[in-house]
């Protein structure tokens, strides 16, 4: 038998979990389907901009959000959603394990996926010196030389984390200067192990079995080839469109779902919140995702109240 819910939230990061907390407080029977409860904030080395926590590990913050949700009667299913089908009376949501659920309305809080470099041999070197997760793989590069590709907050915190265990970190930014908050910029300046290479990019991955170097677009110290043991990539993220494309939601030019201030999308019965929307003026932080989740859940509650 297909289980039915007035509201199904797809995604369990700060947006989905906050929406779940609000829905629980509103006594709205809700199911959250999340592949990763806590979401990608769990990969952040340090978080310094979530009120109430002057400095907290990303994983700890994610776990605390999940614990907070669990104080409310909201069902949390750990699964990957395989398909969303629009029906006359709502939506049919199917997981990749073929479990089926019906919802009157949906809140999409799927987050984004990390961007890759787009180089031909990227898959071959994954796990052979190329990584997208410094917290997972940094330990393999103790006392070695690594590079981080990217120049935003996430890339900079990744470089700072890696500097704690490696001999040297090249931080390679596409922009003429880092695109991070001034406090992180200062932290990079203070960390002598980090060597900043701006206005440059990785154009080739070099190595036989494992990665042994990278080629840069512009020469750095007269060389375009930089010998390294590991490359960590943090060049932003993009919304995953596999699930949302069939729903014909209006998006901006980069594929982020357009929402109104109350989280409503262009399709009736579908709200969206968090990093996959254009609602945070491109800030896309845990705090903005949580705020969007709260506003969407509140509007969904008002929708059901009005409906009676």
């Amino acid at each position: 038998m297909v289980k039915e819910f007035p509201l199904i939230i797809i995604g369990g990061g700060p947006a989905g979990l906050t929406a779940g907390i609000y829905a629980g407080r509103s006594q709205l029977k809700t199911l959250i389907i999340a592949e990763q409860p806590g979401g990608t904030i769990g990969y952040a080395h340090r978080v310094q901009n979530f009120p109430g926590f002057p400095e907290i590990g990303g994983l700890e913050l994610a776990n605390r959000m999940v614990e907070h949700l669990q104080k409310w009667p909201v069902e949390l299913l750990i699964a990957r959603v395989g398909q969303i089908i629009k029906k006359d009376d709502g939506f049919l949501v199917t997981t990749d394990q073929n479990q089926e659920y019906r919802a009157e309305v949906l809140l999409l809080a799927l987050g984004t996926e990390k961007r890759k470099l787009g180089l031909p041999n990227e898959d071959r070197f994954l796990g052979r010196g190329l990584s997208y997760c410094a917290l997972c793989d940094g330990q393999f590069f103790k006392n070695k030389t690594v590079a981080v590709g990217g120049g935003g907050d996430a890339a900079v915190t990744m470089a700072l984390y890696l500097a704690e265990m490696t001999n040297k970190v090249f931080l390679i930014s596409l922009q003429p200067e880092l695109n991070c908050s001034p406090s992180w910029h200062q932290a990079v300046k203070n960390q002598k192990k980090i060597e900043l290479i701006c206005d440059n990019q990785v154009t080739e991955l070099i190595g036989s079995e494992n990665l042994s170097g990278i080629r840069l677009k512009n020469p750095y110290q007269q060389q375009t080839e930089l010998p390294i043991d590991g490359l960590f990539v943090e060049i932003g993220s993009a919304p995953s469109t596999t699930l949302t494309e069939p729903l014909n939601l209006a998006t901006d030019s980069e594929g982020f779902i357009k929402i109104k201030a109350n989280g409503r999308t262009s399709q009736s019965g579908i709200w969206a919140a968090g990093d996959l929307t254009s609602g945070s003026n491109k800030l896309r932080q845990a705090i903005t995702a949580a705020a969007e989740g709260a506003m969407a859940a509140d509007d969904i509650y008002r929708y059901f109240k009005q409906k009676g």
Partner: peptide, 19 residues
Amino acid sequence: DIGEHEDLAEKFNVLSIPT
């Protein structure tokens, strides 16, 4: 656990987890 068995991680050329 690669923290306890670095030797095995090295032997199997594991540079990323989970593998």
